[in-house]
């Protein structure tokens, strides 16, 4: 690791101020950032830990029934505390990494990083969640801009994410056997006004909505509705662990399983 300064503010305002320094970077749980630093692939002048900010911690149900999760809330906390209100999202959080990683990794860190194979982006986009930052609110549909790219400005912090709770939802994750990120992960959420289907792990462009599947399921919410649907393999990722065609196939299988799980 290159040398850097470390700061651990206790308020969002202080964190924003600290991030004003040149090449300062926010530190969530560090479960991706620290390995990156070890490889010397990043050289921040200062890391600003968000783990000491009480207002960014925890899971709570808002008056409108939506679930608000503080940006610095760990995956383990979400898995535990969202289980009653939003079981599918809690289940997703409980499938990220491994127990020790879940005790450190945070929702804000994961969503801000937007790894193309991460789980949370599928849950956030699939839930039509709202990303709340220190300056604004961003709809999930406008947030994810391609792999490792988001609508966040420099120094902008995800303070919380607000999830409308669907009638029913399911996350189906097919493991990449080495990293145990998603080789393909499909999040399906059924709201009163329609179904959302999001896919992670599969595309060069990061998380995306599979609109054809959404349309088909809006017409008829059962596994067979997907029968003739195939996703175009052209934009899929091809690597050691699966070809484009295989990933495209898995998108269909995982989506069908998500529907079955919601029946």
């Amino acid at each position: 690791m290159y040398s850097f300064d470390f700061e651990k503010p206790s308020t969002v305002a202080d964190a924003v101020a600290a991030l004003g320094a040149e090449d300062a970077q926010a530190l969530g749980g560090g479960q991706t950032l620290i390995p990156t630093l070890k490889q010397r692939l990043a050289a921040p002048s200062k890391l600003v830990s968000l783990s000491g900010i009480a207002e960014m911690q925890g899971v709570c149900v808002e008056d409108d029934g939506s679930l608000s999760i503080g940006g610095a809330t760990t995956h383990a906390t979400v898995a535990r505390e969202a289980a009653a209100t939003y079981p599918a999202l809690a289940a997703l959080a409980g499938q990220i990494g491994d127990p020790a990683v879940r005790n450190r990794g945070t929702i804000g860190g994961s969503v801000a990083n937007n790894d193309p194979a991460a789980c949370y982006p599928a849950g956030v986009l699939g839930s039509a969640a709202t990303i709340v930052t220190n300056t604004r609110q961003i709809a999930a549909d406008a947030f994810f801009e391609g792999m490792f790219t988001t609508a966040l400005e420099e120094g902008e912090i995800i303070t919380s994410i607000r999830f409308p709770v669907p009638q029913v939802a399911s996350y189906q994750k097919f493991l990449q056997p080495a990293s145990r990120f998603a080789l393909v992960g499909v999040y399906l959420a059924r709201f009163a006004d329609g179904v959302r289907v999001t896919v992670t792990g599969a595309s060069e462009d990061g998380v995306f909505r599979w609109s054809e599947a959404e349309e088909a399921l809006n017409k008829e919410f059962r596994p067979d509705a997907l029968m003739d649907l195939r996703i175009n393999p052209a934009n899929m990722i091809a690597d050691l662990h699966g070809s484009k065609a295989y990933r495209a196939h898995l998108v269909s299988v995982m989506t069908k399983r998500a529907v079955e799980a919601c029946m």
Binding site: P177, A178, S179, D239, L240, H241
Partner: peptide, 10 residues
Amino acid sequence: LSASYMDYAM
């Protein structure tokens, strides 16, 4: 291509 545990499946 399999240069770490991220790609070498143990």
